[in-house]
Amino acid sequence: MKKLGMADLIHPLTLDAFMARYWQKKPYVGHGSPQRFAEIAAIPELASIDALLEAWRGEADAWAPRDTKNPLINASARQLPAFYESGYTLYLSKVEDHVPALAPIARKLERDLGLRQDDVYFEAFISKGTGSGFHFDPNVTINIQLIGSKQWCVAENKHLVNPHVGWSAGAEINEHMQRYARQPFPTRMPPNCRRFEARPGTLVYLHPGYWHCTLNHEPSLSLLFTINPPSWTDLLMDEIRDLMLKHDDGRELAFGLASTAGHEQKRQRLQHLIEAAGEAVAQLSADDLLADWGGVLTASFERNPQIACRVDAGRSGQDDVLVIQSGRKQERSVLAPDARQVLKWVSARKKSFRGHQAAEATTTVATTRVAEILEQFADAGLILREGSA
């Protein structure tokens, strides 16, 4: 069965038009029947608010109505129905952990957008007679209204771009965000905000930092695709940290920072580490990092022309055996039935391919399993990963 993808979500707008006009530029609002998202609409746990709450097995946040000063409460699954009936908004994160049918849809969107596994996950908002105060998020969200209607107000954020954390009215502003904000944050929604109503089947796309608030006067359930890859800074800092941890002095505890004693020794040590950090950065290669960060499903592979292989069929219910030959060296390993499907597809490739192409071509094999199999083939030398030394 074809999985719901990005093109299906924004239909009848074409994917090229969406990327050119809206992606990371401005909101997109599309109205229509919930049945256009048939794969989601058919999931029993999302058929009603009661069904989702019954399926929920973990904790979730309960947000008090906006006209009260009650605190946010981290509630257990058993408490959630009572908080909902009391007018609280329930915020459920990683919904796919409780509704497994959503997981393959998240993986499909990752492939469509060239993202790594777990860069996309689901959140849900359940409420009646309330909503969310004005705020912005640090990630991309695609919100689908499943049950009830909700009033939206959205506005461009001229105070900053690419926030590394979210913020809501009345909260303390992150100290780093204060440094890169272009102007002080507002105390209310900008007056030029756009207002609209989301009804069952409405889709709302927002990019990071866009101001928005919501209000509903009836039971409401919305499901969010939350698209949250790491930032370039996060990725680079992890790489630099890994390199700096190789220095003995860098791993030493920094005693004496609040004292002037031994100042010259501390200064020299720190200067040495600063120079070492510069040398570490100089070692980094954009090509190598992109190949490493891409993950199996977005990595590019090609058949290794120096390796030959064959499959010896198993006898009497035994597994098939993969025989890999390199020169005079021969290695044998068990070949599971799903791995044989992937091998058959890979063996027919005459040009390079990406991991997600193998996943899309072998639909009877779980995407995560395809990634594992490709890793095994790469480790065995059967395929070569682009950018690998």
Rank of each mutant, 00 (worst) to 15 (best):
residue 5 G to W: 13
residue 11 H to M: 12
residue 23 W to T: 07
residue 24 Q to T: 01
residue 25 K to E: 04
residue 25 K to H: 02
residue 33 S to D: 08
residue 40 I to T: 06
residue 40 I to L: 15
residue 40 I to S: 09
residue 43 I to G: 05
residue 53 L to G: 05
residue 54 E to L: 11
residue 55 A to S: 15
residue 56 W to M: 05
residue 58 G to N: 10
residue 67 D to F: 01
residue 68 T to L: 03
residue 69 K to H: 10
residue 74 N to C: 02
residue 79 Q to C: 07
residue 80 L to I: 02
residue 80 L to F: 03
residue 81 P to E: 14
residue 82 A to S: 15
residue 84 Y to M: 10
residue 84 Y to S: 02
residue 86 S to K: 11
residue 95 V to H: 03
residue 96 E to N: 06
residue 97 D to R: 11
residue 99 V to H: 05
residue 100 P to Q: 06
residue 100 P to L: 08
residue 104 P to Q: 13
residue 106 A to Y: 07
residue 106 A to K: 05
residue 108 K to A: 12
residue 111 R to N: 04
residue 114 G to N: 12
residue 115 L to R: 03
residue 116 R to G: 07
residue 117 Q to M: 04
residue 118 D to V: 02
residue 120 V to I: 13
residue 122 F to K: 04
residue 123 E to V: 04
residue 125 F to S: 08
residue 127 S to V: 08
residue 132 S to P: 00
residue 134 F to E: 00
residue 135 H to L: 04
residue 137 D to T: 09
residue 138 P to A: 13
residue 139 N to Q: 08
residue 146 L to M: 15
residue 151 Q to S: 03
residue 153 C to Q: 10
residue 155 A to C: 00
residue 158 K to W: 00
residue 161 V to A: 03
residue 161 V to Q: 11
residue 162 N to C: 14
residue 165 V to M: 15
residue 173 I to G: 06
residue 174 N to F: 12
residue 174 N to G: 07
residue 177 M to C: 06
residue 178 Q to R: 13
residue 179 R to E: 12
residue 180 Y to N: 14
residue 182 R to N: 01
residue 185 F to D: 01
residue 191 P to Y: 06
residue 193 C to K: 00
residue 195 R to V: 01
residue 199 R to W: 01
residue 199 R to E: 02
residue 199 R to G: 00
residue 204 V to Q: 00
residue 208 P to C: 08
residue 209 G to C: 03
residue 215 L to M: 02
residue 216 N to R: 01
residue 217 H to K: 13
residue 222 S to A: 07
residue 223 L to S: 06
residue 224 L to I: 03
residue 230 P to I: 11
residue 240 I to V: 15
residue 241 R to G: 04
residue 252 E to V: 07
residue 260 T to G: 06
residue 262 G to M: 04
residue 269 R to Q: 11
residue 270 L to Y: 12
residue 270 L to A: 11
residue 274 I to R: 02
residue 277 A to H: 02
residue 277 A to I: 02
residue 282 A to W: 09
residue 285 S to N: 07
residue 290 L to M: 05
residue 292 D to Q: 07
residue 292 D to V: 01
residue 294 G to Y: 02
residue 302 E to G: 03
residue 303 R to V: 09
residue 304 N to L: 14
residue 309 C to S: 09
residue 313 A to I: 13
residue 313 A to F: 14
residue 316 S to D: 05
residue 322 L to Y: 06
residue 322 L to M: 12
residue 327 G to L: 14
residue 327 G to W: 12
residue 330 Q to M: 15
residue 336 A to G: 06
residue 336 A to C: 06
residue 338 D to G: 02
residue 341 Q to L: 11
residue 345 W to Q: 10
residue 346 V to S: 01
residue 350 K to I: 10
residue 351 K to R: 05
residue 354 R to G: 03
residue 363 T to W: 08
residue 364 T to M: 07
residue 364 T to E: 04
residue 367 T to V: 13
residue 369 R to H: 13
residue 371 A to Q: 07
residue 373 I to D: 06
residue 377 F to Y: 09
residue 378 A to K: 09
residue 380 A to F: 13
residue 381 G to H: 11
residue 385 R to G: 00
residue 387 G to D: 09
